[in-house]
C-alpha cells in the first residue's frame, strides 16, 4: 500500500500507476487534470507515472473563475 497525499488529504492506495490511482479514487469518468509533486502529468502519460510513498497528487477539475 502507498501512503500519499491527494489534494492535501492523506490517502492509502494500492495503485502502482497514476492512471490506476484515479480509477481507484473514483475519478474514472471525471474531466480532471493531474500533477504529481508539483509537476503536470498529461492524461496520456498517467499510465507511465509510478506512484511512490509520500507523493503529493493534485487532481483539479473545472471550476468557476473570474
Amino acid at each position: 500500500m502507498k501512503h500519499i497525499q491527494v489534494n492535501s488529504e492523506k490517502v492509502t492506495a494500492k495503485s502502482e500507476r497514476l492512471s490506476d490511482l484515479l480509477i481507484e479514487l473514483g475519478y474514472a469518468d471525471a474531466v480532471v487534470a493531474t500533477a504529481v509533486n508539483g509537476d503536470f502529468v498529461t492524461q496520456g502519460n498517467r499510465a507511465n507515472i509510478q506512484i511512490n510513498d509520500g507523493d503529493r497528487i493534485e487532481v483539479l477539475a473545472p471550476m468557476q473563475g473570474g
Partner: peptide
C-alpha cells in the same frame, strides 16, 4: 467566459456539472 481549475473530491460532481453548463 472565464473559468478556473480547483481541487475536487472524487465524489463531488460540481466541477463536472459546471463544465457541462459552460
Amino acid at each position: 467566459a472565464t473559468v478556473s481549475l480547483r481541487r475536487e473530491a472524487s465524489g463531488d460532481k460540481a466541477g463536472q456539472d459546471f463544465w457541462r453548463l459552460i
